[in-house]
Design a protein around this nucleic acid. Structure first.
Lengths: 143, 143
DNA sequence: AAAAAAGATGTATTTTTTATACATCTTTAT
DNA sequence: ATAAAGATGTATAAAAAATACATCTTTTTT
């Protein structure tokens, strides 16, 4: 049971961007801060942009800024966007399920309930909660 | 975010075995019931046996039986045994973590809390809860 | 107009993980 | 002895994830 690295990266991108209020940040500087290839940050930025968490500006002096207030960026929703696959069991994927006991099986409900509990926690937090100690984070990011 | 197929299979093995009270069941019959290769069931049975959920008997007339009452087989514990890797984020794996903001990052606590909520649900259920409609399950297993 | 800096996009490759299969044991009742 | 059952180790294949490369387009500056 893991999240994708891109999910992790996405949250870091948002946190980094949140340390700079309104000021544009480049993919390059995020990549260098976290010692991650720009290529990966680029992909993540693209997804975050499509999902309208950030706004990107091309060209010289371009960069990214948050598209909304940190209080409006819900952690659960970010994770739902970045992770695409929540088929914890075979029977969660109707198209490919071959388990014969599915019609009467309580397991799927139990696992489903557990997954709901997982997201219920995440849905209680926003980016703003992660930035509560912004100055400390800035220091670790060498700002 | 997925569980391993082996985790799914493990739960099916336990459920199948629970339909037969005390009576030994063979790997072959479980494999045939679920249309899964015996090879996989064998591996899963081996793990379940090491974890003392089932007892195996070799030789002719051998097979497997539950090692304890279904009420004593907790779903959360089975999943913890079958899944080995709970590094949802890079920073969960101390040995390989390279994220610079780890010392001050609240994200790990948020994700950790979510994972706890996930298991807290699972820990509330036992194999007995999954067998509440045993006869219906038996029918689907062609017994 | 050219150059430079930034993000956008598509594709390819590599690595890791997961799933699957094969071969060869050992055990035990008949 | 033989057959039926599980135990074990290893190898292969498939899928997913991670990473890298190449080539755009956009925009500001000179």
């Amino acid at each position: 049971m893991r999240l994708k690295k891109y999910t992790d990266y996405a949250l870091r991108v948002l946190m980094y961007t949140a340390t700079k209020n309104e000021e544009k940040v480049s993919i390059k500087e995020i990549a260098e801060t976290f010692f991650i290839s720009s290529e990966h940050i680029r992909k993540v930025v693209h997804q975050l942009s499509k999902a309208e968490y950030i706004e990107t500006t091309r060209g010289r002096n371009g960069g990214i800024v948050l598209a909304k207030s940190p209080t409006d960026i819900n952690i659960g929703s970010v994770i739902r966007i970045m992770e695409n696959d929540f088929y914890l069991l075979e029977c969660f994927d109707d198209g490919h399920n071959q388990c014969v006991i599915t019609p009467a099986c309580h397991l799927r409900h139990v696992i489903g309930e557990a997954m709901n509990a997982f997201f219920q926690v995440l849905d209680q937090y926003t980016l703003a909660d992660l930035m509560e100690n912004k100055e400390e984070l800035r220091a670790l990011m060498n700002q």
